[in-house]
Amino acid sequence: MRSSLNALIKREISVVLRSQSEFIYPLAFFLIVTSLFPLAVTPDPVQLAFLAPGVIWVAALLSILMSLNSFYQLDYEEGGLEQLLLAGVSGRDIVMAKSIANWLVTGLPLVIVAPLIGVLFDINWDANKIAMLSLFLGTPSLCLIGSIGMCLTLGLRNGGVLLTLLVLPLFIPVLIFGASAVQAAAIGTNFSGQLAILGALLVLSIMLAPFAGAAAMKIAID
């Protein structure tokens, strides 16, 4: 069981890395979107520091949303998914493996790059650490929830826009607690509650999302 999941994760990563540069896009998107805000709102450091938690979280959320497609669409179109299911691999394992691979390829780089954005937005080091930690706890949930939406829209003509519509409302709890943890850290109040809830959301999505994703995947393949 463990080894098959490992093999699946390796497969997913190799599939995505094969299309060389595509996994860089979400990261680049994250950097560009966040750097648009000072241009659109104000270069004033005080206000930027105030905006930063929200900006970082919204941008991270959109990057994850963008990255989902490359893990599913091609695999579905080339028939790889169907083969896996026919070979008796459970849909839950596939969704889990894809989400883990997705997080390793997209989520983890976001966590690593986040302090850089924090520096650009002039937030203090404590808030920066919490930004990393909250992204570390929150982005896996986003990958898992997103995979449900992705499985539902597999094979649809304009699935991309639809995916946004389906998934963004479900992202809201993660967004609220993630951004608020960073905000709390920035003004020096207690943030452990928010992080605990992010952790709880992660556990919940690990338990439930693979079921929903597998059910949706089966519908698309049948």
């Binding site: 539902l152 809201i172 709890p173 929903a212 949706a216 519908i219």
Partner: peptide, 25 residues
């Protein structure tokens, strides 16, 4: 038929999420 089943999955996922969303809001 596909539409029905896919939409049903979404509705159930939404139902699980509504209390969480409500609480977080």
């Amino acid at each position: 038929k596909t539409a029905d089943r896919a939409a049903a999955v979404l509705a159930i996922v939404g139902l699980v999420n509504i209390p969480i969303i409500h609480f977080s809001v």
